[in-house]
Design a binder for these strands. Sequence first.
DNA 1: GTTGACAACCAAAACGTTTTGGTTTATACT
DNA 2: AGTATAAACCAAAACGTTTTGGTTGTCAAC
Lengths: 342, 342
Amino acid sequence: MSVSIKDIAKKVNRSITTVSRALNDYDDVSPETKQLIVETAKEMGYFPNTFAQRLQKQKTETIGLVIPTFSPRFSDPFFSELLAGIGNKAADLGFDLLVSTRSPGPQEIETYKKLIDGRRVDGVIVVRTRKQDARIEYLLENDFPFVAFGRTDLENGYSYVDEDGSFGMQLIADHLASLNHRLIACILPPHNLTFTQKRLDGLRNGLANHDIYLQEDYIKWGDLTQRSGYELGGILLDLKERPTAIAACNDLMAFGAMSAAQERGLEVGKDVSITGFDDIPMSEYSHPALTTVNQPVYQIGAMVCEMLIKIIRDEINETQKVLLKPKLVIRQSTGFNHSKIY
Amino acid sequence: MSVSIKDIAKKVNRSITTVSRALNDYDDVSPETKQLIVETAKEMGYFPNTFAQRLQKQKTETIGLVIPTFSPRFSDPFFSELLAGIGNKAADLGFDLLVSTRSPGPQEIETYKKLIDGRRVDGVIVVRTRKQDARIEYLLENDFPFVAFGRTDLENGYSYVDEDGSFGMQLIADHLASLNHRLIACILPPHNLTFTQKRLDGLRNGLANHDIYLQEDYIKWGDLTQRSGYELGGILLDLKERPTAIAACNDLMAFGAMSAAQERGLEVGKDVSITGFDDIPMSEYSHPALTTVNQPVYQIGAMVCEMLIKIIRDEINETQKVLLKPKLVIRQSTGFNHSKIY
DNA sequence: GTTGACAACCAAAACGTTTTGGTTTATACT
DNA sequence: AGTATAAACCAAAACGTTTTGGTTGTCAAC
């Protein structure tokens, strides 16, 4: 089997204590012994048993992330970037990352309970927050360390990072208004997500500033996938009074809507303007390139992860609330509207 | 702090042993005591300490996955689907999933060593295999359980699942040839990946069957991102003798190439045909929809995960080699070539 | 009325660390 | 010579489980 501290102790004729302390660089071990121990440890191929350490220290040095996979064929470039941000930061800070993939529902909260009650992780990251979020309620009840990417209705008592989606959609509203669009439709994410409300409010208020009012039948709810953007985009474009612009609430749905438009022989950016949200890497290389709102997902992942680890290490005690101002990225999927205005 | 088996023992006036055995449903505990113990455990909110169990059992019930993130802004829908497949299967079988994200290089193998030597996981899944793969060599040397998604030059002594990329590209070759294409270019993944070679060979052989030969200057190497498809696609389309078809080796690069074509005013599927590989969900909703080779990534993830867990549990001893026959999916990005043939 | 079988229970060891609270020995200071 | 200080070391407990190898008591069988 593998080498333990005991084996080293035997070999160098010292106690287990001394070996442990030498390896952890305590200064009540003489430099010679320390060197001897460190060398024989290396030579014997010693690696500490992680679980023994964790049991003793009562810390896991692990954080948990439960990715909500909406469909079985879950394929979202947004999440892989977020994961990279979280994962790289965690590794840099010496933490492991435990990932579960579960679709929202009863199984999801069970997964959280397993992580928390089994003390498998020191803290968790909650993503894609919902207006009423059972996960966050559970974490707060149990006083368990966590950081959220996104807000909830109940905004107090915990740390989060979020982009200011309302502001982002106002930028979109201003942009579309400046391009002479009046008949504007939108494709939204599911109702229960917090950012759906924020983005819709932002769009509505932003347009209101230009005396433009969103009509109810121009508002469609999707599920964030390209497929749903395609289907809903198709419905919107087939309305008797076709909107001149469609604001989708994420890039994937925007791509779907673009595809629907092109299928109908419309030139995107000329006959109809389409906008996204997220600025995933693809949006720069779609055709036409997508006008969207940039959200630094990789950095957000890293930031959320770092905040969580600081909380775990007790380097922070006040709750932190970070709201990032997103930036508008204008590309070719939006253009001036020449059709008559009602 | 939290409730331990000792607390339960004290409360019900039994030994620690009995409590443990009751909770694990051994039959040398009387039904009444068993019931009593189980009930008070629940009532006291007992959850076993995972690390103590793992230390004692010398098993981690955890598998490791190191995702190679090529760029810092890593955003690949392929991997989120694979992750979902692996993650869901792992959860179903009662295993935790430890994920690291590292770009290939010296840090990557260190990450593997940490997982293995620190005995943090019972086995690992290796993805995106390379022709000479240091990770696999290390795992074989250390006789550590693993399953690979993909092959290497050294194909023996370990279990893997792979799609038959060579066959897949032959399907593409047949398809393009049948559409009267002769001047065919391709955009390949990086040299060192195993599947690059397989796919190139497949394309080359497939075309040779139709007496078509791939010219060296029509072969470009990319990095699997949309950006690189866009750039290399642009280069290919600007050649004096423009290829009538471009076979990209993954969907993302195909999208990039499509975008480059459209920017040049070419109609994809008519003026130029473009094919991908993977059939990620997006490819159905791009414009035009992408002709590609289907690879059931979600199922592959689940399959690889299940194989690994069976190996860990000693339910399999022979090495398993699974080679999946991919299917051609014909959509609108390919069409008949009307230009003259040389 | 001894023997054997069985049911129900348990003390102690083990897993591999770290930490606590020491002891021993040598050296320096009065 | 006696005392204080410091350097180097270590035994044992602890973390929370599971497993090993028992013991005790009851009852049936001969």
